[in-house]
Amino acid sequence: MILSRTATTFAPPVMEARRWLDGVDFPADRPLINVSQAAPVDPPPDGLRHVMADVALGRDDAHLYGPVLGLPELRAELAHQTSRIYAGQVETDHIAITSGCNQAFAAAIATLCAEGDEVILPTPWYFNHKMWLDMSGVKTVPLKTDAALLPDPEVAQSLITPRTRAIALVSPNNPAGVEYPAELLRAYFDLARRNGIALILDETYRDFHSQSGAPHGLFEDPDWEDTLIHLYSFSKAYRLTGHRVGALAGSKSRLAEVEKFLDTVAICPGQIGQHAALWGMQNLSQWLAGGRDEILKRRRAIETGFHRLTDKGWSLLGSGAYFAYMAHPFAISSAELAQNLVRDQSVLCLPGTMFCPTDDATGARQLRIAFANLDTSGIGILFDRLAGMNTGG
Score class of each variant (00 low, 15 high):
S4R: 10
T6S: 14
F10R: 11
V14W: 15
E16F: 05
L21T: 01
D42Y: 07
P43C: 00
G47N: 09
A53I: 10
A56K: 05
R59T: 03
R59P: 01
D61I: 08
L64W: 11
E73L: 13
T82K: 04
T82F: 14
R84Q: 09
V90D: 02
T92L: 13
T92F: 09
H94N: 15
I95S: 02
A96E: 00
T98R: 07
G100E: 10
G100V: 13
C101M: 15
Q103L: 12
A104H: 13
A110T: 15
T111K: 00
E115H: 15
E118D: 06
W125E: 00
W125Y: 09
W132F: 14
T145V: 00
A147Q: 11
L150K: 13
P151N: 11
T161A: 07
P162H: 15
P162R: 14
A168D: 08
L169D: 01
L169P: 03
L169A: 03
L169I: 03
N173P: 00
N174E: 11
N174A: 13
P175G: 05
E183Y: 12
L191R: 11
L199T: 07
L199E: 02
D202K: 08
D207G: 10
H209G: 05
S212I: 13
H216A: 04
G217E: 04
E225P: 04
L228W: 09
I229M: 14
R239W: 08
L240Y: 01
L240Q: 00
R244N: 09
K252C: 14
K252W: 14
K252Y: 12
A256R: 15
E257F: 12
D263S: 14
Q271A: 00
Q274Y: 03
L278E: 03
L284A: 09
W287C: 13
L288D: 12
G290S: 12
I295W: 06
H307P: 04
H307A: 15
R308L: 09
D311C: 13
K312E: 12
K312G: 06
L316F: 04
L317I: 12
G320A: 01
F323R: 02
A335S: 05
L337E: 00
P351K: 06
C356M: 14
D359R: 09
A361Y: 14
R365N: 03
Q366A: 12
L382I: 11
L386T: 10
